[in-house]
Write a protein that binds this DNA or RNA. Structure first.
Length: 539
RNA sequence: GUCCCUGUACCUCAGUUGGAUAGAGGGUUCGCCUCCUAAGCGAAACGUCGCACGUUCGAAUCGUGUCAGGGACGCCA
């Protein structure tokens, strides 16, 4: 069993015996930074002394007198009433066996039977994915990996806006380029897409069908369809190269079929009213500061309307929770959608938005704006080529999503300790190398010969992995994983420097240290996998 | 004007949901390879946690006010 959890249960039990019922979640275990404060500490005596009507130090003494000391070396009361726990070595050492036995499942949470739909990227299929999408992809995908690992059922979903006016502009732009290829007079639409990719798509369509589009009844409809397909194909390829896949692609066009929008309006009729020829939804009855237009006076629906249908559809597919990763400019949109969900009787919490803040690129100390190749905004493909997938993913998730991110491109390609990606990967490669060289020595999975401070510090950190995963999942915070990875790599490097692992004259110690190496290697790899970064065996 | 986010070392950011002497990386300075990967380790310097009250045993963390920066507020998506 998890070291911390069993400790929490012991504390709960002790409190129960002195007359206070607590749940395990209410107990906070801290990892002491100062070794003289023990391995773990709790503030529970301070926190609940008032409820017991005693002073904190007395409560601490009482708790200790009722504490099950199995696995605990000694306990101290410190300061105003902290309880410090000094664990027996063997209880820490048990984590080594646990990690090696569970291997690639170490840190995995129990099945929660809780279905979460995570929608991310959802870029319009009208061009390449740019930086904003890239960070959304890295964070969204990492959140999914972490949630799955923590035991949730996760569906990764991409919403394709394939019905709006921007798709019309795309089709018109492709048609213009198509006519250009055929040597016919053409005119690029003002709101069109003027990029190189549109020319490529026109070329491909010409290769597929020759000049047949000219004789079609409705060539625009064809170009819409094929254009979206081809743009989407490129997006999928870029995402695949970035290590991101989706379970479900939902199409706005499909959502609009079968009068679904009209039915939805009928369903919401209690909250719909007309004003100056437009149709509005009374979102201000809920969380919004004003009502929102759902159908313009010219009869067209605003984007908001199919979005409502789409999210109601998601809920009808049986999810307990919807998570949507959006750019920070969509901030005003959240309460609008929550309001619509509430009209359907859902709690507002089921619709949860993770806002992604802007990324600023720094190169050679200066802000860096444009892509080398196209002169336009930096694309996901540019990043994969210039910086590489591992570094890009690591950098994108290493800060809280809600914060602005400075992406130092010079640092990201640097192969040194300054670069956090290589720092972590190097730790993994080093461990692999040692394990390879000591492969003839049988591992001591009881890790019975670990005494040094650096060994114990490493062990302690390894034992907290599952807690970190669970926390990162609840908070939708992949950066907590990168923080964990960094700390782990640091401890590994310290241990490696202080402790000679392979020592043919001292095989007992070597066997224990190799087991510790194996456990560390597994944990680093599992953690890196959670953010989609590779764990190389050699560097 | 209304609402949201941010304010911690020279720079970029953590800070375990209110805990013990506020941390890490970059940058700067110094030391460490005859030995498992020096893509590494160790040490030094760097702080009014924007500011002021309040809540309590205890505040970077919670509340109120205030200052500064960014963003959102369309019959756009």
């Amino acid at each position: 069993m998890e070291l911390e959890l069993s400790l929490k249960e012991k504390i709960v039990k002790a409190f129960m015996e002195i007359g206070l019922t607590l749940s395990v979640d209410e107990i906070i275990i801290e990892h002491s930074k100062d070794p003289s404060h023990g391995d773990f500490a709790t503030n529970a005596a301070l926190k609940y002394s008032k409820q017991l009507g005693k002073n904190p130090r007395d409560v601490a003494a009482l708790v200790i007198s009722h504490l099950d000391m199995d696995g605990i070396e000694k306990v101290e009361i410190a300061g105003p009433g902290f309880i410090n726990f000094f664990m027996k070595n063997d209880s820490l050492q048990k984590t080594v066996r646990k990690i090696i036995e569970e291997d690639s499942n170490y840190g995995r949470g129990e099945k929660k039977n809780f279905k979460i739909n995570v929608e991310f990227v959802s870029a319009n299929p009208t061009g390449d994915l740019h930086v904003g999408h890239a960070r959304g992809a890295a964070i969204g995908d990492s959140i999914c990996r972490i949630l799955e690992y923590a035991g949730y059922d996760v569906t990764r979903e991409y919403y394709i806006n394939d019905a709006g006016s921007q798709i019309l502009h795309l089709a018109e732009s492709i048609l213009a380029r198509y006519r250009e290829i055929l040597g016919l007079p053409f005119e690029l639409p003002e709101d069109g897409y003027h990029g190189e990719d549109v020319i490529q798509i026109a070329k491909q369509i010409y290769e597929e069908i020759g000049d047949k589009a000219l004789s079609m009844d409705d060539p625009i409809e064809y170009f819409k369809l094929r254009g979206v397909e081809l743009e989407l194909e490129k997006i999928k390829n870029d995402l695949k190269a970035f290590g991101v896949h989706f379970d479900v692609f939902s199409s706005e066009k499909k959502i609009r079929e079968n009068n679904a929008i009209e039915k939805e309006i009928e369903c919401l009729h209690n909250y719909v009213y007309e004003d100056e020829g437009a149709l509005l939804l009374k979102t201000s009855d809920f969380l919004d500061d004003k009502d929102r237009v759902i159908r313009k006076s010219n009869g067209e629906y605003t984007y908001y309307m199919p979005d409502i249908v789409y999210h109601v559809d998601k809920m009808s597919r049986g999810f307990d929770q919807l998570v949507v990763v959006l750019g920070a400019d969509h901030h005003g949109y959240i309460n609008r959608m929550k309001s619509a969900m509430m009209m359907h009787g859902y709690k507002p919490e089921v619709y949860e938005v993770e806002l992604i803040q802007m990324v600023r690129f720094i190169k050679d100390g200066k802000e860096y704006k444009a892509s080398k190749r196209t002169g336009d905004a930096i694309t996901l493909r540019d990043l994969c080529e210039e910086v590489g997938v591992d570094a890009t993913r690591y950098f994108f998730v290493m800060r809280a999503a809600s914060g602005h991110l400075d992406f130092d491109m010079s640092l990201a390609v640097e192969q040194s300790s300054s670069n956090p990606v290589y720092y972590a990967q190097y730790a993994h490669a080093r461990l692999c190398s040692v394990l390879e060289q000591g492969k003839d020595i049988p591992l001591d999975i009881n890790a019975s010969h670990l005494e040094k401070e650096s060994e114990k510090a490493l062990l302690k950190h390894l034992s907290t992995f599952a807690n970190v995963v669970s926390d990162a999942a609840k908070e939708r915070a992949p950066y907590k994983i990168t923080n964990y990875i960094h700390d782990l790599a640091e401890l590994v490097h310290s241990f490696y420097t202080e402790c000679r692992v392979i020592d043919r004259d001292n095989l007992d110690v070597s066997a224990s240290r190799l087991a510790l190496c194996k456990a560390s290697q597994i944990t680093i790899k599992n953690a890196l996998t959670l953010i989609g970064v590779s764990a190389p065996e050699r560097m």
